[in-house]
Amino acid sequence: MKYWRVPLDSNDIAVSRGMVVIVEERCKGCGYCIAFCPRNVLELSPRYNVKGYHPPLVKKPDDCVNCHYCETICPDFAIYSLEIPGD
């Protein structure tokens, strides 16, 4: 995410962290999660799933903030994210 200025309280805000789980067999390769992830966490995998589509691949697992957007936009119930508890 780009800021036009750094928020004054950016050091105090705890950013949640997430883990993306991909159900590869369900994916139909529409690419919505890849195109609209606000942190660009995903990319297209070169591999094929059982139906011959390219599922997404987690490119930058550390950048996921568990916003669940991939989960809500996926038309095939093939991706979701889980919160990693902070310390």
Partner: peptide, 18 residues
């Protein structure tokens, strides 16, 4: 019944999930 019959890129799945 999943995967459903909707084509790749079809928006009905998203509306249904919402």
């Amino acid at each position: 019944r999943i995967p459903h019959i909707w084509c790749p890129g079809c928006g009905i799945g998203t509306a249904f999930s919402a």
